[in-house]
Amino acid sequence: MDTIISTIIVCAIIAVICVFGVLKYIKSLKSGCCGAGGDSVKKVKPKDSNAKNFNYEYKIVIDGMTCKNCAMRVENAFNSDENYLAKVKLSENSAFVRAKQAVEEKVLRDVVIKAGYIPMKVEKV
């Protein structure tokens, strides 16, 4: 008798977890993977958008970006600093970052991490 009650309780807990999972999935279909509530992230325009002013270029392969809001967050993280000019190609899971001066790989990785994503590979282009 005790095993039947235990089984019922475990099944009920699993059912509740499944219901919450389905509800979260439905919400993500309506509002995007980032839970942005259907609102897109506002683009930060770089102070200097002339690519000729940036002598160094890096490609950063990033894990965790799944939608245009993710890409915009990474671009904004770089473009809010006047020393960078960035463009994210979501189809390549990569950010192409131009810098006015040479930048250490760790600094670029830290910007991506602060934006909420995982830098997988950084290379100078």
Rank of each mutant, 00 (worst) to 15 (best):
Q101V: 15
L85F: 03
S31C: 14
S94N: 04
V44W: 08
I8N: 07
I17T: 04
V125S: 10
M120N: 12
I5N: 12
C18K: 05
C33T: 13
A115K: 04
V112A: 09
R109L: 02
I14M: 07
A99D: 03
F78C: 04
M120R: 10
A102I: 13
R73M: 10
C11D: 14
G38L: 04
S94W: 00
G35C: 06
V111H: 07
I14S: 09
Y84W: 03
N69V: 03
C67E: 01
E75M: 02
V88R: 06
R98D: 06
C70H: 01
E104T: 01
K68W: 07
M1V: 13
G32E: 05
E92L: 10
L85I: 03
I17C: 14
V74I: 07
A77H: 06
K89C: 08
A15K: 01
G35S: 06
A71Q: 05
D2P: 09
D48Q: 08
T66W: 11
A102R: 12
K124I: 10
Y58I: 00
N76P: 02
G38A: 04
V112R: 05
A95Q: 04
V122S: 00
R73H: 10
I118W: 10
V88Q: 01
A115H: 07
Y56Q: 05
K42G: 11
S6N: 15
G32V: 06
N83S: 08
A102S: 15
G64V: 07
V16L: 11
V122A: 00
A51M: 10
S28Y: 15
M65I: 01
L90G: 00
E104W: 01
K87M: 11
R73L: 09
Y84Q: 11
N93P: 03
E92M: 09
C33Y: 15
C34S: 14
I13H: 05
K47A: 15
K59L: 07
Y84N: 08
D63A: 15
S49I: 09
I62M: 02
I4N: 11
Y117G: 02
T7A: 14
V44G: 08
V74N: 03
A15Q: 03
N50L: 11
N93I: 05
I26D: 09
A115S: 06
S40N: 15
A12R: 01
I8D: 03
I17F: 12
A15N: 01
S80M: 09
S40I: 15
D48Y: 11
D110K: 11
N50A: 10
I60F: 00
P46S: 05
K106N: 07
L23K: 12
I17K: 09
E105R: 00
G38C: 06
T66K: 13
G116H: 08
L90V: 03
F96R: 01
F20Q: 09
V111L: 11
K24T: 14
A102E: 13
K47F: 14
F96L: 02
V22P: 02
I13M: 05
I14H: 02
Y56I: 05
L23F: 14
V19T: 12
N79W: 06
A77C: 02
N55L: 13
K106G: 00
L108A: 00
I13S: 07
V19A: 10
V107C: 08
K87P: 14
V111N: 07
I4T: 14
Y56W: 08
K114Y: 08
A15Y: 04
I5S: 15
F20G: 12
E92S: 08
G32M: 06
K47M: 12
V44Y: 11
K45Q: 15
S80Y: 05
V122D: 00
E57P: 04
I13K: 03
K68P: 07
